[in-house]
Amino acid sequence: MEQDGIFWPHGLFAKEYYAGDEAKTTQFLKDLYSNVTVLDTGARGSTTTFVENKKGDVLLAWENEAFLSVKEHPGEYEIITPSISILAQPSVAVVDSIVKKRGTEEVSKAYLQYLYSDEAQKLAGENFYRPSNPDILKEFSGTFDLNLKLANIDSDFGGWAAATKKFFADGAIFDQIYKKK
């Protein structure tokens, strides 16, 4: 039994793992998802279901969620890092038209720049997010598995539009793995 709130990393992971063999990838996902008992609406919901309500044997989680669970419940869970995973980067941006209207351009840009300062990068690492600054990432080599091969949406899967169409659009791979046989 497993439970999971995030589909796409595994879909992409399988594709990478089977070196692009579509049939094998879909079959892998079918087998995987036939064991999933709860699909929460978000990653934090999944963590709660698994960690607090003790549902399922395995939680497929984001790295930071996994570390947080272990921090909250020391000794209860074991983290298994796969050999391949996918780089997930939420975007952060200053929207010109809005900051100009509100006169907040300066403070917004300052915040954006701060996120990439050494101080903020260290804070991210302490909270289990991989720092994007490679030097600071190395300082956290005790926390993160730096040998993990990370696939990237843009370079490995042709960007979000293509990946969405292939995996998540109506009738795409995710719908196929749940179609009744």
């Binding site: 999933v36 008992t37 709860v38 699909l39 929460d40 609406t41 919901g45 749940y178 009744k180």
Partner: peptide, 16 residues
């Protein structure tokens, strides 16, 4: 949504 497993064909509700 919290108490449903949200599994397609089994425990998914229409609002989800």
């Amino acid at each position: 949504v919290f108490i449903a497993g949200n599994i397609p064909y089994k425990t998914q509700i229409t609002p989800l």
